[in-house]
Design a protein around this nucleic acid. Structure first.
Length: 108
DNA sequence: CGTTTGACTGGCC
DNA sequence: TGGCCAGCCAAAC
């Protein structure tokens, strides 16, 4: 395993810590790991389908679902979040900032 | 090894 | 409020 892969693993581990009904932003995760939001987005893009990583709970700082190069995956993402209890308003943004999940370092 | 691109972000107008 | 630009890092060419 290369060091870059380890970085990706760190991202995936954090994303897995997000409970259902909660979401987080790329920048937030990136800051914790020590990288940038672009890298987090890249890690999500490199995420294989069927993985145990709830990538749908990761959105941008605008509180909206990011648009993917793939196509309509963004619509599926919003749908999955709504099934978990995350509500969106007419603008496609989070209905409330209460959905944001704060990563608490219990094992410091 | 230099360039381009991308599921981002913040500042500026 | 919203569009545009620059900065950031990693992968693909």
């Amino acid at each position: 395993m290369t060091e870059a892969a380890s970085l990706y693993q760190s991202i995936y581990i954090l994303v897995r810590q997000i409970p259902a009904g909660k979401v987080s932003s790329y920048g937030r995760i990136a800051k914790i790991i020590g990288t940038t939001a672009r890298t987090v987005g890249f890690a999500m893009a490199a995420l294989p389908p069927g993985s145990d990583v709830p990538w749908q709970r990761v959105i941008n700082s605008q509180g909206k679902v990011s648009r993917r190069t793939d196509g309509e995956g963004n619509i599926l993402q919003q749908d999955l979040l709504e099934q978990e209890g995350v509500k969106f308003n007419n603008q496609g943004k989070l209905d409330s900032n209460n959905y944001l999940y704060e990563f608490t370092n219990k094992n410091e």
